[in-house]
Computed example of a mutant assay.
Amino acid sequence: MPFKFFATPSLRQRLSTSRLLLLGVLLLSMAGCSTMGNSNNKPPEPAPDLSELAHKAAQQMVASNPDLTRYSPMIAATFVSIDNLSQSSTFGRISSEIMASALAQQGMQVREVKMRDSMFIEESVGELILSRQVQRLSSQHNARSILMGTYAQGQDYLYVSARVVRSGDAMVLGSADFRIKLDNNMRSLLEGQGGW
């Protein structure tokens, strides 16, 4: 007659408790490993703000044309809405100021000129033409270049195109484009529409 092994209830209970404990430890360690390898649990990095984007754009302009700073001094025009080139906003005014500051940090000499009613950009066969007033202002301030830009409002982003042009013939010396998330702060800056 073969020998049969009958575990006592206490031994059977201890074996089952050990197994459950071992299974629990394994499950916990697997969950810990999957959490460590999952980068979705990290908080998202904040989107760059207008100042950061303008400084990167200025660096890009100078990097693509190291001779850009030779066209100093520069004057800055208010950035305008691409949909109405005679209209700007608080955003257009501050983005021009920040961009001029960023270019100054890159070595561009910037003349401080508040250009209210001093500049008009006319659209003609896809070209931007400088008005006589701007050329006169450039001459008065001995400016060799002008910072100008346009912006367009989309559903989720605001698109900005900035360029430095030679004052004599409107030749583009440097340009950069960027987009910024359209949040309540940006919408507030855009609400201040008006002339320049």
Rank of each mutant, 00 (worst) to 15 (best):
Q140W: 12
Q140F: 13
Q140V: 13
Q140I: 14
H141W: 14
H141P: 06
H141A: 10
H141D: 13
H141V: 11
N142W: 11
N142G: 12
N142Q: 15
N142I: 12
N142D: 08
N142V: 12
A143D: 02
A143I: 03
A143F: 03
A143Q: 06
R144F: 01
R144S: 06
R144H: 03
R144Q: 05
S145N: 13
S145Q: 05
I146H: 07
I146F: 02
L147H: 02
L147R: 03
L147W: 00
L147C: 09
M148Q: 08
M148W: 02
G149T: 06
G149C: 13
G149I: 06
G149M: 12
T150H: 04
T150L: 14
Y151A: 04
Y151R: 11
Y151I: 09
A152V: 06
A152F: 04
Q153M: 08
Q153W: 02
Q153F: 02
Q153L: 12
Q153N: 08
G154Y: 07
G154C: 11
G154W: 04
G154E: 01
Q155A: 13
D156P: 02
D156H: 08
D156V: 01
D156I: 01
D156M: 05
D156N: 11
D156W: 02
Y157R: 02
Y157S: 01
Y157C: 01
Y157P: 00
L158F: 12
L158V: 09
L158I: 13
Y159C: 05
Y159E: 12
Y159G: 10
Y159P: 03
Y159Q: 14
Y159D: 07
V160I: 08
V160R: 00
V160M: 04
V160K: 00
V160E: 05
V160W: 01
S161I: 12
S161L: 14
S161A: 15
S161D: 15
A162P: 02
A162R: 00
R163Y: 10
R163E: 15
R163M: 15
R163D: 15
R163N: 15
V164S: 07
V164K: 00
V164I: 04
V165M: 02
V165T: 03
V165S: 04
V165W: 00
V165G: 06
R166C: 14
S167Y: 01
S167P: 05
G168T: 14
G168M: 13
G168R: 08
G168L: 14
D169K: 09
D169S: 14
D169E: 05
D169Y: 02
D169I: 14
A170V: 10
A170N: 09
A170C: 11
A170W: 00
M171N: 09
M171A: 14
M171C: 10
M171P: 07
M171Y: 02
M171S: 12
V172G: 08
V172E: 15
L173A: 10
L173C: 12
L173E: 14
L173T: 09
